[in-house]
């Protein structure tokens, strides 16, 4: 088991003919992920071919879903069109939409989030590395890779990883794999101030997943999502959780790369998040180099 996606998940890629989307569709195919459809408006009927795999391209997500029974989507559409692309996936009743796109206007995401209220579709991202459920093959081949994460650093196993940052997720995964410890699923929820899935959402899924035995939660400055997750873990947590918060040295009022990584009005500080972690019994890694070791000591 795993959360959100399995090696059998049928993936469609929105924006498959763009340079970025194409490159990562290829890498997902190489990883053994079931890439079953592509969507690029106006290019319906064409075929995306890679390593002997022929992926049909459709004009609309609805058509792609009807023809290929895809249940999940990776959105690689440029920022001005990304909100529309996400809502198209919601309209087509996908189980999961993973928005990789960085730079979507906040107001667009406020509207998307409101429009998704009551819908059964889960949105991950935007501005995120995506999801990986590692496979059983060499270098975790045969898993489900949605997004831009390097598949080969993973290893099939029992640790869940959730993070707002891409490379910091890879860092944690790499630390685990180097110590011979595998992952159930790794989820990058994204660095924007408005996102589809929160730390708490993913933590709840990991706690309910019998195949996940421990969790690494990585946060950063800005907002209060980490505090909310910590509060829930304090009351309902059943598995060891360790984590790290990036940005203790960031100057207040400055956006640190991610649109959501900002301490404003004294809110969203690393200190407040570390305090919430400690109060909830979450293991705090003294440095980002010790994320895996901190968790493994608790298990």
């Amino acid at each position: 088991m795993s959360i959100l996606v399995t090696p059998q998940t049928r993936l469609l890629v929105q924006g498959i003919t763009g340079a970025f989307g194409a490159r990562h569709a290829q890498l997902s195919i190489d990883y053994g992920t079931q890439v079953v459809a592509g969507v690029t408006p106006g290019k319906g009927g064409q075929v995306f071919e890679h390593a002997g795999v022929k992926v049909p391209i459709f004009d609309t997500v609805a058509e792609a879903v009807r023809e290929t029974r895809a249940t999940a989507s990776a959105v690689f559409v440029p920022p001005p069109f990304a909100a529309d692309a996400i809502l198209e996936g919601v309209d087509a009743r996908l189980d999961l939409v993973v928005a990789i796109t960085e730079g979507i206007p906040v107001n667009d995401m406020i509207k998307v989030k409101r429009a998704m209220q009551g819908s059964a579709t889960r949105l991950i991202g935007p501005n995120c590395p995506g999801i990986v459920t590692p496979g059983d093959g060499k270098d975790s081949h045969g898993g489900c890779r949605i997004g831009i994460a390097p598949g080969y650093i993973h290893k099939r196993g029992h640790i869940g990883v959730v993070s707002r940052s891409g490379t910091l997720t890879y860092e944690a995964v790499f630390q685990l794999t180097s110590r011979g410890v595998g992952q159930s699923t790794c989820v990058g929820i994204g660095g924007d101030p408005v996102n589809g899935t929160s730390h708490l959402d993913v933590i709840q899924l990991f706690m309910a997943d019998p195949d996940t035995h421990g969790i690494i939660m990585i946060g950063e400055i800005g907002g209060s999502a980490e505090e909310e997750a910590a509060e829930w873990i304090k009351a309902h947590g059943t598995k060891p959780v360790a984590g790290f918060i990036a940005g203790a040295t960031a100057p207040p009022g400055r956006r640190m790369g991610h649109a959501g990584a900002i301490v404003s009005g004294g809110k969203g500080t690393a200190q407040a998040k570390f305090d919430a972690f400690r109060a909830a019994g979450i293991g705090v890694a003294a440095t980002p180099s010790e994320m895996a070791d901190t968790l493994l000591k608790m298990m």
Partner: peptide, 9 residues
């Protein structure tokens, strides 16, 4: 961005 902040930390 996350790794860059962590590097400062």
């Amino acid at each position: 961005a996350g790794l860059a902040m962590s590097t400062m930390d």
